[in-house]
Amino acid sequence: MSRRVAGFGTMVVMLALAGLTGCTPAVQAPSSSTTSTAVTVTAKNVSWTPLTKAVNKSTAASMYKLESDVELKNGSMHTSYTVYGTVNLPDRASISVHENNFNISFYQQGKVAYADETSSWTQTDPIQDLRSFNSYAQLVQTAAGKHLTLEKLNRTFVVDEYCDVYRFTMPNQSVQLPGFLQQVAGNNRSTLGSNEPIQYTFYVGQTTGFVREVQTDSINPVDQLGPVVTDTSTTFFDIDEPKVAAVKIPQTLVKQLEGSAQQ
């Protein structure tokens, strides 16, 4: 009898201790299904033609989805900016932006644009230029024109196809800034901070020939704050696939507008 009690007691105690001391599952690294990273350099100095061709082909794409992740680190500070969106050129888009701890949803069709920050949609100005690939094309053109060294890295799988991977380094002010910053910066480039190198890695689909992913790695000094380690990655998918990449109006917007006359 006492032996049975001891056995029972042991089990109860063990279970209780396991529960009390937090037998929790181990933290899993977030699975990144869409982004991949090439690491091995396979050729030191390759021709710019395939990359130029790929960015040019991508600028002609009229519908696609994109997913971006920007990570900033300064000291123990760690903030992020993420984007998920569908773009149908020339003037339709549905974009959601997650800035640190708040969310923005944006919807545009032609001259109509709505944004949602606090779970209600409000009218806003449409964005004139929804194209994302053009500034990549400009960047690659400039780099190729300067005959910068282009490295080729190991073949890497991105989303749904194998990609050729190309890498080069350019000063960070070689790119065109979004409109609102161009106005501020204007003649005063110093407000942007110093012109540091950025390492760009382009992933070009072997089957589709489109640019599928672009990563950048850089360290950008900020006056009085110090260097901000900035890593970005942007993935493009469902390129020119009307079935899945067509912009749809958010249901919450439809609901809100349907009821608006009665209010």
Binding site: V97, A115, V175, D223
Partner: peptide
């Protein structure tokens, strides 16, 4: 602003530069 955040989102080529400019300002 919402509009600026979306403009930034649609310019992936300049993310790093944009963030640096925003930080400095």
């Amino acid at each position: 602003t919402t509009n600026q955040a979306v403009q930034t989102a649609l310019n992936p080529a300049s993310y790093a530069t944009t963030m640096q400019a925003l930080s400095n300002q």
